[in-house]
Design a protein around this nucleic acid. Sequence first.
RNA 1: GGGAGUUUAGCUCAGCUGGUUCAGAGCAUCUGCCUUACAAGCAGAGGGUCACUGGUUCGAACCCAGUAACUCCCA
Length: 896
Amino acid sequence: MSIAKTYSPGEAEEKWYSYWLKHNFFRSVPDDREPYTIVIPPPNVTGVLHMGHMLNNTIQDVLIRRARMKGKNACWVPGTDHASIATEAKVVAMLKERGINKKDLSREEFLSYAWEWKEKYGGIILEQLKKLGASCDWERTKFTMDEDMSESVIDYFVHLHKKGWIYRGVRMVNWDPQGKTAVSDEEVIRKEVNQKLYYIKYEVASDGEQGASAERTSHHAPNTKEYLTIATTRPETIMADAAICINPNDERYLHLHGKSVFIPLINREIPVILDNYVTMDFGTGCLKVTPAHDLNDYELGQRHKLPVIDILNDDATLNEKAQILVGEDRFTARKKIAVLLEEAGALEKTEDYTSQIGFSERTNAVIEPKLSMQWFCKMPELAKPALEYVLNGEVKLIPEKFINTYRHWMENVRDWNISRQLWWGQQIPAYYLPNGDFVVAKTKEEALTQAQAIDSKLTLNDLRQDEDVLDTWFSSGLWPMSVFDGVRNPDNAEINYYYPTNDLVTAPEILFFWVARMIMSGHELRAQKPFTNVYLTGIVRDKLGRKMSKSLGNSPDPLDLINKYGADGVRVGMLLCSPAGNDLMFDESYCEQGRNFANKIWNAFKLIKGWEIDDTIAPKNQIAIEWFQSRFNQALVEIEDNFAQYRLSEALMATYKLVWDDFCAWYLEMVKPAYQQGVDKQKIDAETYKATVNFFEDVLKVLHPYMPFLSEELWHDELFGTRAELDCCIVAQMPTIGKINTQLVAEIEVVQQVIAQVRNIRNSNQLSPKEALPLAVKTNSAINYQAYESVIKQLGNISELSKVDDAVNGANSFIAGTDEFFVKLDIEIDVAAETERLEKERDYLIGFLKSVNAKLNNERFMANAKPEIIDNELKKRADAEARLKIVEDNLRGLAG
RNA sequence: GGGAGUUUAGCUCAGCUGGUUCAGAGCAUCUGCCUUACAAGCAGAGGGUCACUGGUUCGAACCCAGUAACUCCCA
C-alpha cells in the first residue's frame, strides 16, 4: 500500500464536511450540558466572503469546536442581515437591467423583486463559510427579515415608543442622495478630498436700498459698489443663503454691523448677523449661512431665527427654490455657477483646499446634510446601563484597550436616527390619522383601536402607515435575543438556555454600531448582558499595511486561497498572523506555512503507518514515551492558558511547536526504528507502537479546532482501529492535563543540547551525517547519561558513549548544562580555532560573572531584592564559575 | 483641534508583577545535506543601541516625563 507523499485537502474537505452535516454534529438543542453559544455577526446578505470574514469566522469556529470537544453543548448560530441600503441598491440595479424603474413600482411589487433577489443571491456567503469548515448549526440559520425576527423588531419599537424613548422630529440628517435615504453618523465615512475654495463677492446694500432688491438687475458696475467677500467650498448653495455671519469682534467688518447684502446672481437680500461662532482667520472672516445645507449653519440659523431655504431635491439636484440652474445636479451646478459668478464679476478668486467630506458607506455618494422629518431613539437612558456592563466587567472587551473607546462613545452619545427612506426592511409601525396625528401599534388593527379613541368614526382605510423602514442595526441590535425568539417569547426554553451567549467575535469598527446596541437592548428587554466576552479582531490588511479593498484589488479571493492551500492551511495562516485587536498584515506566505504544517502532520502519519510491530522486541523507549507525555502536558497547560486569554495565535504556535518540534523532530526520531540494511519493513516494539498511536490521536484532538479536516481525515484511518460511525474527531474529548515529569524534561533538554552540539561539530568539520562519532562525557551534574545513551546514540549518530574522569586531549569539546563532552575526531583538531572559541566563551563568562558579582556585592541590592532573586543570583554565580573552570581547564589542555 | 493606541531581528509578533544564562518565537536569510515519513523536508548557523532624549531605581524593553514617526476614533 502506498500513501500519497503530500496531503491533498480538497477531497477530505468535501467528504468530512458532509459527514459532519449528515450526522448532525453541528446541531445543538438544549440539554443537561453546559451551553457554549456564539451568534455569528450576521454578514450583509449582499456580501461575498472576504478576508475579514475569513478571519472572523475562523476564530469563531476554533472557539466553537474547542468548546464542543470540551464537552460543552456548543451552539453557533449563523445568519445574515438584510442590509437595507445595500440590498435595495442591488435590487434597483437588477431592475434597471430588466428595464424596470423603481419609481414605477408599488412598495409591494418592489418587495417581491427584493425577496426574489434575496432568495437567489442571499445565501452565497453562508455557502462560502462552509468551505472554511464553519461548524454552524445551519438549522438555526436566521435572517433579520424572517417573519419572527421582524416581529421582534416591531415589538421592540413599540416597547421603546411606549417608554417615550422614540420620537419624531425634524433634524439635519446625513442624506445619501444616491440611496435616497438618511444614514446614521456611523455610516458616514470621512475622507480628505481636494477641493476648491471659492471667494465670492456679495454686494452690500446701501442704507437707502433696503427692500429694493426686486428692481435690481445684475448689470451694476462693480467698482461703484461696496462688497464683502465670503469663502466657500459650495458655491452652488448660495441661493439657499439666509445670512452672512461675522464675528462681532472682527474689527475689519465693524462697518457691516446692521447691514444687509445681496446674493449674487439672484439678488436676494439677506442680513449680516453677528456670532462668535465665526472664526476670524478662516477664509475672509465672512461666513455665508445656509441653514438648510449645513449642520453648523442650521444651528446658527436656529439661534438667529433665520429662514430655512432648501434648494435641493432628494437626489441632490437643484429645485425651483434655487431659481437658477434648476434641475442640475449639485456638482454640475457647482461648475456652472462658478462660470456664472465669474461672468457676473462676483467671483474674486479660487484656491485649492483640502477638507473632510462625508461619503455614504453603502453607496459611496457624497453625503448631503439635509433637514428632514425622521424617527429618533433617545440614547442616554439606554447607553448608561450599557456602559456599566463593560465598566464593571460583566461584559469583557478583549483586548481591554477598547474599553476607553467604548466609554467615550457611550458618554457622548447622540440620539439615534432610526428611520430610513427605503422599502426593504421593517416598516415603521406608526399609523397616521387623517388629521395628521399618529399612533404606534404592532398591527394596523391595534392601531385602529387606538385611533378610534381619538376619533371613533375612523376605519382601517383612514389609517396610513409611515413609509419609512427601520435602520438595519435596529434589528441586528436584537440578534442574540431574537435568534432564540427571546423578544417575542422572553421565557422560552431556548433563550433561557443559550442566553446570555458566551463569546462574540467582531470588528472594533462596529463596537458602537452593533455591540453597544445589543448590550442596550439586552439590558432593556431582559436586564441581562447579551454575551460575556467580546473578542475584537483587527482589520485584515495587505503586507504593505493597506486595508484590503476591491478598488485596490489587493485582496485575495478567500476561496482561491482555500483551493490553493486547503481550508486548514488557510485557517492556520489566518491565525498565525492575528494578534487580538491588532490589525494583521496578511500575506499568502502564512497560508503556505499552514499548508506545510498540514503536510508535516500527514508525513508523521505516514511514518507511523509504515511501522510493523514485532512482539519479540523488548520495549526500549520508556524514556522517550514518558518525556513526550510530559511535554504534551506542558503544552496543554500553555494552550489552556493562551485560550483563557484569547491568545489564539499563541495557542496555535504552542500547538505548532508541540507537533513539529517535540513530536516529529524529537519524539518520533527517538523511537523510530533505525534503518537496517536489507530489511524492507521497519519493526517496532508493541509498547512503543501503542504509545505512539495514542500520542498521535491526542495530537489530532489538539489540532482539530485549527485543522478540522486533516485531523478528521486521519482520525478515521485504520491505524486507530475501527471507529464507530459517530466516533469522530469533531466530538472527541479534548485531552486533559496529566502528569509532568519536570526533572525528565529538564534532563532531556540537556541531552538535546548535547545532540545539537555533536551535530554542530559534525557540520563545522564538514563531516557527513552518516559518519558515527565517539562521544565522551565528564559528568559534573547528577544526570545519569547512561539512561539516555540510546537516545543520544540514535539522534547524534554516536558510535560509542564513554565516561571519562579527565578532559580528553585533542578532542573537540563542549559544555551542556554543567557537564563536559568530548568528540575525538580522526582529523587533527584546529587548535587555533578551538582556542579562539574557548577564549570567547571564557571572556563572556568573566563578563557575566562580573555583572552578577556587582549585584551581589551591592549592599542596596542585598537589602532590597527579594530573597528568591538573590538565590537566583547566587545560583547564576555558581553555574558560571563552574563553567568558567571547565573552559579554563580545556584551554590549558589545548595549550599543553 | 480633542482622545486612544503603536514603535523590540529583514517581516509578523511575544515578552505577565522591573530581577533566571533575558533580549525571545515563527517566517525569511546563510551553510551543509535528495539520511528509507516529509526538499511543502532534515541538520546547523548568523541577525537586535528594545524609536529617540532624559529621569526614577541596587537594577529598566518594562515605570515616569519629553520628542519623533505611524495608526485609529471623534470633531
